[in-house]
Amino acid sequence: MTSNEQTTRETATGERADLLETLAKHRHFLRFTTRGLTDEQAGLRTTASELCLGGLIKHVTSVERGWADFILEGPSAMGDFTAMTEADWAKRTDEFRMLPGETLDGVLAAYAEVARRTDDLVATLPDLDAAWPLPKAPWFEADAQWSARRVLMHIMTETAQHAGHADIIRESLDGAKSMG
């Protein structure tokens, strides 16, 4: 945990403290899967999926950044997923892998920066009930709205889910486990 995460968590109370603590716990487990790895190892696919550890962290970083933008700006921050082209979708797949020139340290630093921003948002947002319509996407119910609270729970769920994926990838890489 960084000193900023600690300070933000110490000053928050009630529900906000709970949200920050849960985010910190799941972020820790995700980052922990990369302990002691080289850049090359962070980019290896070790299962039947296309996923690698560095790519998972890049994806979670992108997801968290996008949803934090949504809390502040609404659906325009995320765009219209129904209008995306094949090229747009292909570009999004790059966030699931380590690209040439990317480093694990760089990926982790970007994730830490996004986490700090989200933590500051949790601590200072005037109203967790403030809601926006969801962006257009085939996976969202039409005309649905999510509150900031719901978005933060989604970020936590996404992070926890991918921490589990990362644990499997790491165990397949060298037998290291996050727990147990």
Rank of each mutant, 00 (worst) to 15 (best):
90 A>M: 01
88 D>E: 07
122 V>H: 05
87 A>N: 10
122 V>R: 03
109 A>F: 00
97 R>F: 07
91 K>T: 14
96 F>A: 05
121 L>E: 02
109 A>D: 07
114 V>L: 00
124 T>D: 04
103 T>D: 07
94 D>M: 07
106 G>I: 00
96 F>M: 10
114 V>S: 05
123 A>L: 11
122 V>F: 00
110 A>V: 01
118 T>R: 06
116 R>S: 14
117 R>G: 13
111 Y>R: 13
85 T>L: 09
85 T>H: 02
89 W>T: 01
117 R>W: 14
102 E>A: 02
116 R>Q: 14
92 R>M: 14
88 D>V: 06
109 A>W: 06
108 L>V: 02
93 T>I: 00
107 V>G: 02
98 M>V: 02
102 E>F: 03
111 Y>W: 13
116 R>P: 00
124 T>C: 13
110 A>Q: 09
114 V>N: 08
99 L>R: 11
118 T>K: 11
124 T>P: 02
114 V>Y: 02
109 A>Y: 08
99 L>A: 06
110 A>S: 11
119 D>C: 01
88 D>W: 07
111 Y>L: 13
122 V>L: 08
117 R>Y: 15
106 G>M: 04
95 E>I: 10
102 E>T: 07
102 E>Q: 09
116 R>Y: 07
100 P>R: 03
96 F>T: 04
113 E>N: 12
91 K>D: 13
115 A>M: 09
110 A>F: 07
